[in-house]
Design a protein around this nucleic acid. Structure first.
Lengths: 244, 244
DNA sequence: CGCCGTGTTGACCAGTTTCAAGATTGGTGG
DNA sequence: CCACCAATCTTGAAACTGGTCAACACGGCG
């Protein structure tokens, strides 16, 4: 099990919110069960399907890390709650994403259902077992973790060095890429404005205003609160990273 | 090699800037070469000592990830540089810290010497080799990576949800803990004000003002630019996380 | 139909940045 | 050893971004 480098054996994985899809990359040839997928099928065996209602807690920061999860449908947020009641969302996970893996002892963040959610829960003990016996599995976990790191670094830059409008624009681009929606095609925005604000380190009002601005300048369309379409990705990318 | 959970075999490691010390925890019994240290001695074998002058680049974002590094002396910063010339420092590393490990293919950030630095460079290939044959090594790497994740989450909260003065106070507490300086005892601050600003997502002036404020209210003393002493850690902790 | 949670907009205010001017520090050469 | 220079740090004042407070709109749902 390659711990370090090694030219990322598998197909390049698009950068999502942190934990990249461990599952097969969507849009890939649908030939079932390639050799390197045996680990995924093994995982499949040990999982249990569980559902969580919107806004319920899946696990808490500090809980004993008993399971690794994979999202079947719905969306999840990973939050840090501070002593004085502030909240920072570290990541949003969508269908196909894994979370709670590789936690040493206890979870270091709270996981909550953004919408009604169906997940597979894999007992940590058995995931560990698998990774011990299957090089492909441990390699996958490492790659996954690396992707998480990459995503968090980008998130840091967003929070540390981008203006409000830039953050919102970047966020929309991430979501759009993630939903592989075409330019002009609306994609789902399952999280509330408050969730977005807490992900971007802003207030809900600032998020609203930024969205209104982008709409007013015809870069996006907002058919309804939980759906957005990018009308001019060129210009939106510029807005996400304005040179001045 | 336990990939996931497993009650963190070793002594609890204080939370530093991200990559926690992989080396022996300072303050632990100095009995040489315990069984679980064989991996460290193995690492020792394959390393080369290298020095970098202040403000020189150790490796660049996007470079082929050829080495894992351990700092012998000095300090290092890990930076993301954005297209429009902004800079965000993701982490500071001090003596004993490792960096550049577990990078998949290429480095995802730039590493620069904050001060004159001496590092051990371990060829990635051989680290991988070691982790393949030594369970204790791969466990160590995983723990290290987990600590990095924890540190980044705290960093996210700082950037997303703390006011300028709180960030500076938190930063000083991190540094102080890291240097295990007693209350009132001055510790080294090897990085420039600009570096601190880029770590905290602030401007250099704001960092200066926050420091001046803290000094004026007698929470800290600043014997000189690269040394600070905490005079009232109680109050400083309050300032780092004010309830209002 | 009216209520409640959520989203949007406006007016005002506070915290941070920006711009600009000194103050310190460290290094170099006389 | 001292004077000078450059780099870094500190402080002040003004401008601006984003936050706060408050009112209103919208969209389910009982």
């Amino acid at each position: 099990m390659s711990i370090a480098l090694a030219a990322n054996g598998n197909a390049p994985i698009a950068r999502h919110f942190a934990p990249a899809a461990l599952s097969m990359v969507p849009g890939q040839a649908p030939v079932a069960a390639k050799p390197q997928d045996e680990d995924l099928r093994a995982l499949q065996q040990i999982g249990t399907k569980v559902r969580f209602a919107r806004n319920t807690t899946i696990f808490n920061d500090g809980d004993d890390a008993a399971y690794t999860y994979k999202i079947i449908s719905g969306a999840v947020r990973l939050c840090k709650h501070t002593s004085n009641g502030r909240r920072q969302i570290a990541d949003f996970l969508l269908a196909g994403d894994y979370f709670g893996f590789l936690q040493v002892g206890t979870y270091s963040f709270t996981a909550e259902a953004v919408s009604d959610v169906v997940v597979m829960a894999y007992p940590q003990r058995q995931v560990e077992q698998l990774s011990n016996t299957m090089p492909s599995m441990s390699r996958r976990l490492l790659t996954l973790l690396s992707q998480t790191l990459l995503g968090m670094q980008d998130h840091l830059v967003m929070l540390g060095r981008q203006a409000a409008k830039e953050r919102v624009a970047s966020f929309l681009l991430l979501l759009a890429e993630r939903s592989d929606a075409e330019e002009g095609e609306a994609f789902e925005v399952p999280m509330s404005r408050q969730d977005i604000a807490d992900y971007l380190g802003l207030t809900i009002e600032t998020v609203c205003r930024a969205l209104s601005d982008l709409k007013r300048s015809k870069l996006i369309a907002i058919p309804n609160v939980h759906q957005i379409a990018i009308k001019d990705s060129e210009a939106l990318e510029a807005a996400a990273d304005s040179d001045e």
